[in-house]
């Protein structure tokens, strides 16, 4: 495996600013005016009960979902809808499914091709996950866990400024899980910005600097972990979130 030297930390790490984001699927409003900030170099966890709009928010940032209203600013400029800004974004979807007959290596090669030969790549996760023997098998034959690993490799592949991870550790065994978390921390140390969702509170406590708490399509709370504890008067994040969910927060 060829190891391409990593690029130095980006000079201006990505920051996202979202205002008044609205999205309805048919008659069903999912985002009712979301305001949130994801500061550069920080890990922002989007939390909330099922159906609160987490995935829709993520997909809006990615351009997979077309918002009905509101603005998403990347480093102060509106996110370009034609996909150009996605060169700076790495994405790990909730369910990792791929073209069935391609191998992992081919998918990686495809993404590299798409970016062009000049793009620096980071393939260290392949070794870390011990994926090398799996790369030449058709993806349909891989286990769910290995697919998820490939998905993580792809998210980090181009050393993006902003990483969006939707339930990244779901389906991963504890070893892989901790490898991924180490990777996230290391990247954060290099100034990368993260947006992630998770149902595992301990994981959020472990990784996140900030919380965006969504309820019924609105931001119930947005701020640092310390702030949420303070606001709710709870000592544990789980309690604090439960507190917010029952609507007692400001």
């Amino acid at each position: 495996m060829n190891i391409v030297p990593l690029a130095p930390p980006a000079a201006a790490p990505a920051r996202l600013h979202i205002t008044g984001l609205k999205k309805a699927f048919g008659a069903l409003p999912v985002l009712r005016g979301v305001d949130a900030t994801m500061p550069a170099g920080q890990v922002t966890a989007i939390v909330g009960p099922n159906g609160s709009g987490k995935t829709t928010l993520i997909k809006s940032i990615l351009g997979l979902v077309r918002p009905d209203g509101g603005r998403i600013l990347l480093d102060g400029r509106p996110l370009r809808p034609d996909g150009a800004d996605r060169a700076r974004i790495g994405y790990m979807p909730q369910a990792a499914r791929f073209p069935e007959n391609l191998t992992g290596r081919e998918v990686i090669a495809l993404l590299k091709d798409l970016r062009g030969a000049a793009a620096p790549t980071d393939e260290t996760l392949i070794d870390a996950f011990g994926l090398e023997p799996e790369l030449d098998k058709p993806l349909r034959t891989l286990s769910g866990g290995n697919r998820q690993r490939i998905s993580a490799v792809l998210a980090f592949l181009f050393d993006p400024d902003l990483l969006i991870l939707d339930e990244p550790t779901a389906g991963l065994d504890p070893v892989a899980s901790s490898i991924l978390k180490d990777k996230i921390r290391a990247a954060q140390d290099r100034g990368k910005t993260f947006i992630l969702t998770s149902h595992i509170i301990s994981e959020i406590e472990e990784l996140a600097d900030r919380i965006v708490f969504l309820l019924d399509g609105r931001v119930r709370f947005g701020g640092s972990i310390a702030e949420i504890m303070e606001r709710t008067g709870q000592s544990r994040l789980e309690r604090a979130l439960a507190h917010l969910m029952t609507g007692k927060a400001a």
Binding site: L62, G63, L64, D82, G83, A84, D85, R86, A87, I89, G90, Y91, P93, A95, A96, R97, F98, P99, E100, V107, L111, L114, R115, L154
Partner: peptide
Amino acid sequence: YQAREFVELMLAQPVRR
């Protein structure tokens, strides 16, 4: 229909729809 996931993967890349 079956390419749905591939499409999502691609759309997360700098590719025009």
